[in-house]
Amino acid sequence: MREFDIRRWAPGMLLFMALALGATAVQAQNLQEPPMEGEAMPANTDDPYENWNRKVYAFNDAIDRWFLRPVASGYRTVTPDIVDRGVTNFFNNLTEIRNFTNSLFQLKGESAVVAFGRFTFNTVFGLGGIFDVATAWDLPERPEDFGQTLGHWGVGSGPYLMLPLLGPSTPRHFSGLASDSFMLPSAWDAVDSPEWYYLRTLQIVDKRADLIPAESFISGDQYTFVRNAFLQRREFLINDGKITEDPFADDDDFMLEDF
């Protein structure tokens, strides 16, 4: 296990916050209002903490609306598309070590080879990952994390949770996040302070900026849409693209193919 360092851990969690809050970011107009305070929520066995989750969602959404999104929007405005794409490619390349490790844990030999090949080709021929030459060479990314590894070996997802700052999650997903952050090898281990902090900050802003176009997909009740999108996406990843069951299929018409 890697040595725990809260100073290095915190920016990583902020990155996850950027992704989570970005997934919950929406335009305020033309959206349904959540139930009023004290109004009974419909029971849902797959979301037993919905009352609490909705309150946390509102808190996260406020932080994103007043801080994270404006910064990301400014970054998106001043950064040329080719530079933005290069920054995104660079950080995506760093995740290939995680993809490789978890592919091995799941006994997915082909995916492990693809992850190793992507990291090697993009690092050597893509100028440190700035250019995604691996995808051009028919080696598309196969994302794998420890939450997927737990699911592969039969660990149940648990109830849906909306975590403060961290956004949509489940007990299995959060356990996987912690394992990827603290125990598994990462390309970030080779980066020393203070450059580590500068890069993490850039990664947070870049990720949030890349999520801004996806906001146009959100419709209806914000909370319900985000919950369904998150759970469908996690099932899609854990089952390697095969959706076996959607407990919220009747809530709205969102489908993964919309992305």
Results as ranks from 00 to 15, higher is better:
48 P>Q: 11
123 T>M: 02
240 D>E: 12
198 Y>G: 09
154 G>Y: 07
252 D>E: 04
127 L>N: 07
71 V>E: 02
67 F>V: 13
196 W>C: 08
41 M>Q: 14
14 L>I: 15
259 F>S: 08
135 T>S: 14
169 S>P: 03
12 G>R: 11
200 R>E: 12
185 P>W: 01
18 A>H: 01
183 M>R: 08
154 G>C: 06
60 N>C: 05
131 F>S: 00
232 Q>K: 12
123 T>P: 00
83 V>F: 03
143 P>W: 00
109 G>I: 03
223 Y>H: 12
71 V>H: 01
111 S>W: 05
250 D>L: 09
45 T>M: 15
130 I>L: 15
78 V>K: 01
199 L>I: 04
58 A>V: 14
103 S>D: 02
176 G>L: 15
93 N>F: 07
10 A>F: 15
145 D>L: 08
221 D>F: 09
163 L>D: 01
152 H>M: 05
116 F>N: 12
20 A>I: 13
138 D>R: 07
158 G>Y: 03
204 I>M: 10
148 Q>L: 10
150 L>A: 11
182 F>Q: 04
147 G>L: 14
156 G>P: 08
144 E>T: 14
122 N>L: 02
28 A>M: 13
129 G>H: 00
34 P>K: 01
258 D>C: 04
84 D>Y: 05
119 F>M: 15
105 F>N: 00
69 R>H: 14
145 D>N: 10
114 V>T: 01
14 L>Q: 14
234 R>F: 05
231 L>I: 07
90 F>W: 01
125 F>R: 06
37 E>C: 06
117 G>W: 02
165 L>R: 01
91 F>G: 00
232 Q>E: 09
24 T>Y: 04
167 G>P: 00
11 P>H: 06
212 I>M: 10
228 N>F: 04
33 E>D: 14
80 P>S: 05
218 I>V: 12
195 E>Y: 10
119 F>V: 13
118 R>M: 08
147 G>W: 10
41 M>T: 13
136 A>K: 15
230 F>N: 04
48 P>W: 15
251 D>F: 12
10 A>V: 15
259 F>V: 13
81 D>K: 13
69 R>T: 00
109 G>N: 03
248 F>A: 03
173 H>K: 13
243 I>G: 02
56 V>T: 09
191 V>Y: 03
177 L>T: 15
193 S>E: 14
144 E>C: 05
159 P>A: 14
39 E>R: 03
177 L>R: 02
126 G>L: 01
167 G>E: 03
19 L>G: 12
107 L>K: 09
93 N>W: 11
132 D>I: 03
126 G>C: 02
57 Y>P: 02
138 D>K: 13
233 R>Q: 14
19 L>T: 07
37 E>L: 09
86 G>V: 01
90 F>D: 07
74 G>K: 04
233 R>I: 04
50 E>S: 11
54 R>M: 14
163 L>F: 12
93 N>Q: 06
166 L>P: 00
188 W>R: 13
41 M>G: 11
41 M>K: 10
65 R>Y: 08
247 P>N: 00
170 T>C: 05
98 R>D: 04
79 T>N: 00
230 F>L: 07
110 E>V: 09
34 P>W: 05
54 R>I: 13
237 L>F: 10
133 V>T: 03
205 V>F: 02
87 V>P: 04
